[in-house]
Simulated assay, not measured.
Amino acid sequence: MGIRGTNQQRAALRRLAIAAAAAGALACIPAHAANQTGTATTVIVRPNSLVKVDDLDFGTIASGPTAGTVTVNAVTGARSTTGGATAVGAVSQRATFQGTGGILLITVIGDTSVTLTRAGGGGTMTASLVRAATTSGGGVALLGGTLLPSGVQTYYVGGTLNVGANQAPGDYSGTFQLTVNYL
């Protein structure tokens, strides 16, 4: 018996048979696979820990013929300038630390100022530090020996940098220490 129907129906059935045969042939061809590796990382800390997330960065500054200041707000991270100090570009940031554990009492070791020294020598500037914190429940508080609830707290450090008149150009840096005392 042959295929019955109109010429159009027979042609459609032939095209369908050819398509099915082609699909079957393609199923036998192996697919090409492309591989790429990725990286997953984490840091595990013990309870009652403190981790530095970001450094305090006053950004790039142009000094003028008069002294000035550059302030990075500990609460908002916003930068502002006064006097002969001019902000260049928009890159600046408050320091960020995170602590975990029980009830916390936060203090800054030593003086609340830091001296920034020019790489290669020949110049210094001082900055007065300001601390603030947020708890896992939200809200921001300025710190100075403040009790905080348990959980995860984020601590911010900002400050005001004193820039001298015609301050020598270069990269300046200094260190400060943040200590969290757990009760």
Rank of each mutant, 00 (worst) to 15 (best):
V51D: 03
S128C: 03
V140C: 07
A78N: 09
T160E: 06
L104T: 07
T86Y: 15
V43P: 02
S136P: 12
S150V: 12
S136A: 15
T96Q: 05
I18Y: 08
A141N: 15
A33R: 09
G139A: 08
A119P: 00
T100M: 03
T154Y: 06
Q9E: 14
L129N: 01
G38V: 12
V114I: 01
S113F: 08
T179V: 15
T42R: 09
A168Y: 08
T71N: 06
T179D: 02
T41P: 00
D57Y: 12
L143P: 01
F58G: 00
G24H: 12
G89L: 10
L50N: 05
P65E: 01
I103E: 11
T42M: 04
L183G: 11
T115D: 00
Q98D: 01
T134P: 07
A62K: 05
A27N: 09
G2C: 05
T117Q: 01
A85V: 00
A141G: 14
L56I: 10
Q167I: 12
R14V: 15
S113I: 00
G123Y: 08
F97I: 00
Q36Y: 02
V130A: 10
V157N: 00
R46Q: 12
G122F: 02
R79E: 01
T117D: 02
G139E: 02
P149I: 04
S173P: 10
A74W: 01
G159T: 08
I29F: 10
V163W: 07
G2E: 11
L56Y: 10
S128Q: 15
K52T: 06
V163F: 09
L143K: 00
G158S: 07
S150A: 15
V130R: 10
G138E: 10
A90R: 06
A12S: 14
Q8T: 14
T126D: 02
R10M: 13
L116C: 03
T42D: 08
S150K: 14
G174M: 06
L183F: 07
N162H: 09
G77S: 12
V75N: 10
D55I: 14
R46P: 03
G164K: 13
A19M: 12
T41F: 06
T117R: 09
V91C: 02
R10H: 00
T175S: 15
N48H: 11
F58E: 00
V108Y: 03
N7D: 11
Q177C: 13
A27G: 13
R4E: 07
A119K: 11
T39Q: 10
L26Y: 05
D111M: 03
T100G: 06
V163L: 08
T112R: 06
G110Q: 04
R131N: 00
D54M: 11
P47K: 15
P30M: 06
I103N: 11
G68F: 02
F58V: 01
A19R: 15
I29C: 04
Q98H: 05
R4H: 10
L16V: 11
P47A: 08
V88L: 15
T81M: 07
T69V: 10
Y182C: 11
N35L: 06
L183H: 05
T117E: 01
R46F: 10
A74R: 13
G83V: 14
V180P: 03
A133G: 09
